[in-house]
Design a protein around this nucleic acid. Sequence first.
DNA 1: AGGGTTGTGTATCTTTTGATACCGTCGAGA
DNA 2: TCTCGACGGTATCAAAAGATACACAACCCT
Lengths: 209, 209
Amino acid sequence: MEPNELLAKLPVAFAEPGLREEMSRHGKYMQVGKGDTIVREGQYLDFLPIVLKGEIRVFQQKEDREILLYYVRAGQTCMMSLSAAYFNNTSVSYGVATEPSEIFVFPTRMVSEWQLKYPSWNSFLIQTFRSRYEELLGSFESVAFDPIEKRVMTYLTNRSRQENSTKIAISHQQLAYELGTTRVVISRILKAFEQQGKLSLFRGYIRLK
Amino acid sequence: MEPNELLAKLPVAFAEPGLREEMSRHGKYMQVGKGDTIVREGQYLDFLPIVLKGEIRVFQQKEDREILLYYVRAGQTCMMSLSAAYFNNTSVSYGVATEPSEIFVFPTRMVSEWQLKYPSWNSFLIQTFRSRYEELLGSFESVAFDPIEKRVMTYLTNRSRQENSTKIAISHQQLAYELGTTRVVISRILKAFEQQGKLSLFRGYIRLK
DNA sequence: AGGGTTGTGTATCTTTTGATACCGTCGAGA
DNA sequence: TCTCGACGGTATCAAAAGATACACAACCCT
């Protein structure tokens, strides 16, 4: 891809011309398909990915259970990658594209170099650390204190707000994965919600009332 | 306290003489007693505390349940405070001294100022973000996937390693708080462990085998 | 149209965890 | 020495969550 095209795709948050120039020079543009794995557990990371378009789902896995950590969307980077990259470590979670996505990857050595040179890169890092931490804390709190029933409803209303639609396209199995439980439990809870008139169930999607 | 005494108490990790000087000039030395609350939920933070000596227990609370997030020990700062301080936010957790402790507090505006001026302060921040994140991730994983029984054993062996002793001084009630469950559950599990010969129970403490 | 795959509904049973209650013991301090 | 509060053991019951199994419908592909 032409350097100029790359420049145009970079989030405007990266303000300094010098930074933008370096990013387009050192970065590598990549396209990934739905379901592609970007980062896998235990992988040694010598690059930092930033999402330009699409969505990466980051989760933890243990035996046959998994649990959602967060999504990385346009203009964001993955906290785990950042942490791993910054300290030359391996990743402890997975990143999989939920839709065809475009990402930009940088060699890790630039991460700290740019931090000292470019304030906007520095705030990007701090901002990322912070927001991911708060997000994780929220999930933690929820897993620690809330019954699954409540977590299901929270998940649905959050997604509804985020996508600005009452129709949530997700299967019971997938929802079970996101929340770290099993399909039967989810079906049970959803059915109860439907009988309480809180939502309607369809094949492959749910409609909130 | 004399500036010189303060200087001597600062962790050596803060390398630059300029930084040390500024820290001793802007910082305020404080002593807190066992059980004293340093930070409470919802509190607006205009200072960042660094622990010089002792231990601060940081936890979340919801109704009458609580759950341990982490401990802040000598040379460390509280992730939540940092996050809150950096962005002029309020705290979402509690910090309580578990023993008589000495802390050093700084006005939050210095946090970002020093970050640009002093590399060692910058790495301190990044290091803090990172290690706290990993710690929280570990707890999250454990709460999400592990049965309480396992979490109890993990807690005990961790503490044993940390304090380099097989004697863990903690009551069942306190242990229940740390893990976000209730006393009866803990007593039950501990008794089972004792019958399996994994440990011995005493009033106020537990001895690992 | 047929056959495999995925998604959903539901019943049954077990395990885990939590709630409540009651009792005995230990230890600090009046 | 007496009393009270913290500590710990235990029984009983209830609720939440998970495991397993089976049926059937919708969808996809050839």
